[in-house]
Design a protein around this nucleic acid. Structure first.
Lengths: 196, 196
DNA sequence: AACTGGCCTTGACCTGTATCAGGAAATATA
DNA sequence: TATATTTCCTGATACAGGTCAAGGCCAGTT
């Protein structure tokens, strides 16, 4: 039950609309709580991402394995974020990504079909969806720009400035992969940074 | 008037909803046609992106100038796309980008305030907006992944596979910048590719 | 027809970042 | 407590892609 309180807060905060008790009951009826242990997979390459999971507690990485067997982290998710490959989720196509728990996870899961059937009439949820898509589009746009035109060090500085909590929460090899760097390079950048 | 026909087709195609004559009149009343010549700016760094412009004809680049004076192209836009920095447009914050015409442009312009006042009740427009945000979020997600984990050659191959018309339409130095490469490197990649 | 400026290529060289190898410190597991 | 395992650092070396410099080609202008 306290699972859902965090979720309700999130919807209300993002949408700016208060949920009625009736509306809350609709969420309770159709969002399915689920737990995953550290290292368990939420999604694997080739699968269709049938569910989106709201993260109540814990964290996860979305990543791809390249031809040489190297892992590239595209996204790090924690409380008040969603676990899903939205491309696969909306289009029901096989995903190119893996999503794996970095810490034990508590999720609230739902399918896109359920969203369309049960939540299409709840204003707060509609607005929330719009805000999420908009924010995600903008965040990714900025990340493209950073990836294409910033040096490794600039990207790290950017992370320190904008997502300092990532550094407390995730090991440095995970951060390195998220920044598109080898762990060695990140280590050297940090060594330099601490000097100046 | 034929300006608007292309726009109406676009809305109807993206939303899957036919526009009534009354609805079309609302668009005619509030979207403002505008022309820009090649090399003219639609937006400059530091400005607020007050207008979004639907591209009826022509093309443009969205780019940033780095500390060393180098240009990095974030986005290339042509017919049936929008000209705007959405971050600045939605939040009314100063933009970090420049948008400049690569060819003579014919646009239909609108402010976010107008959208909220006049188009918030037109279902086709609402659905269109959702689809745009969703597609843009997904496209940017894939581009982040490409920028962080693909080699220069893989990124070029990706472009050839997914956006072959870009190559016909834009000079190679523009393509190079869009891929995050120097023109010299792109030239060498193409030379190799044509061999095999 | 000559001139100009933008576009593209090529070669030589340089630099940032990856890779490989080893090891220390911290953390989990027995 | 002992033993793996993971995390992080450091040094040596390799390589992808950037930078600099030069020249050719083509379209537009005079």
């Amino acid at each position: 039950m306290s699972n859902f309180d965090a979720f309700f807060d999130y919807i209300q905060k993002l949408s700016g609309i208060i949920l009625s008790e009736d509306e809350k009951r609709v969420f309770l009826a159709h969002f399915k709580p689920r737990k995953l242990l550290k290292r368990q997979y939420f999604l694997q390459e080739g699968d269709v991402c049938k569910y989106a999971g709201f993260v109540v507690k814990g964290s996860a990485k979305t990543f791809r394995i390249d031809d040489k067997g190297h892992e590239h982290i595209l996204k790090l998710s924690m409380e008040d974020w969603w676990l899903a490959d939205f491309e696969s989720y909306y289009h029901l196509t096989p995903t190119r990504y893996n999503i794996q728990a970095l810490e034990d996870l508590e999720l609230l899961m739902v399918t896109n079909a359920q969203v369309e059937e049960f939540f299409a009439t709840i204003p707060a949820f509609i607005v929330m969806q719009e805000v999420i898509k908009q924010n995600y589009a903008i965040a990714n746009q900025n990340r493209v720009q950073a990836a294409l035109s910033y040096t490794a060090e600039e990207r790290y500085d950017d992370l320190v400035a904008n997502y300092p909590h990532f550094l407390q929460r995730f090991p440095l090899n995970v951060i390195a992969s998220y920044l598109g760097l080898s762990p060695e390079t990140l280590s050297r950048i940090r060594k330099n940074a601490s000097k100046s």
